[in-house]
């Protein structure tokens, strides 16, 4: 147990041990994958010159408001907004931030589709984005059935048929308010935030996709796979 009484100068054995540690290896790997200047870059390639690029950030902005207003609604519980004018206002913000979230996310998706933004080993970026969209649809849906009003009664009793037909309804009971509320405020937000985080890290890791090189590439050319792009260090 020499480590407990060592002085500040480390021995070569210690250095060797440290460099083999899981912690050290994970840190080395992470820094290799995402050096700070790539994670939070201060420059972007010169082809970034279109408003279509801001819709990802707008979607994140809307998501932040969804989470914040959802937290305010949580402070007083699911019945608050029916009886309080402030609660109703926060609920209105929650609803409109969801509408804007999908509005911006779908435009972001269209934009990335027409840029074929999956090119150059960016397939996983597209995949995490598409999965985030699908999970968000579920998160919004569980919100609609957690409203405890006519709308939630109606949506739940209508949606049960589709979900029951797949057999999933036996475990994911849309008529069970307690279960739907938990999915809405715990499980699905955690999923959306985790996937969004992963998506952003992947964008930063590979950088934004370069334009098609019209006329430059022909089919006989070969490609170096596994190349990464980012900002220059």
């Amino acid at each position: 147990m020499t480590t407990l009484e060592h002085d500040t100068s480390s021995s070569p054995e210690e250095d060797a041990e440290v460099s083999k540690q899981w912690t050290t290896r994970i840190r080395r790997r992470l820094v290799e994958m995402l050096p700070p200047e790539r994670l939070i870059p201060d420059r972007q390639p010169s082809f970034l010159s279109s408003w279509i690029y801001i819709f990802g950030a707008l979607t994140i902005g809307a998501l932040a408001i969804i989470i914040l207003t959802g937290m305010v609604l949580s402070l007083e519980g699911p019945g608050w907004w029916h009886t309080s004018s402030l609660g109703l206002f926060v609920n209105s913000m929650h609803l409109w931030s969801v509408e804007l979230f999908f509005f911006c996310m779908v435009i972001h998706l269209w934009g990335k589709f027409f840029m074929a933004a999956w090119r150059g080993s960016r397939q996983l970026t597209w995949i995490t984005g598409a999965v985030t969209f699908l999970v968000s649809v579920g998160a919004a849906f569980t919100g609609y059935v957690s409203q405890t009003n006519f709308d939630s009664q109606w949506i739940a009793t209508q949606a049960k048929d589709g979900i029951n037909s797949t057999g999933v309804g036996a475990f994911f009971n849309v008529l069970n308010f307690g279960q739907m509320l938990m999915w809405h405020i715990v499980l699905l937000p955690v999923g959306v935030l985790f996937l969004t985080g992963l998506h952003i890290l992947m964008v930063r890791r590979r950088g934004i996709v370069p334009p098609f090189e019209d006329g430059v590439n022909d089919k006989s050319a070969t490609v170096a796979s596994g190349t990464q792009e980012g900002t220059p260090s």
Binding site: S49, S50, W51, I52, Y53, I54, F55, F103, V106, I107, W110, G111
Partner: peptide
């Protein structure tokens, strides 16, 4: 309609 319009404008308006 606004989504389609916004998409078109986002591409059309000079940045």
């Amino acid at each position: 309609g606004l989504m389609a319009l916004t998409f078109i404008l986002a591409i059309a308006i000079p940045f």
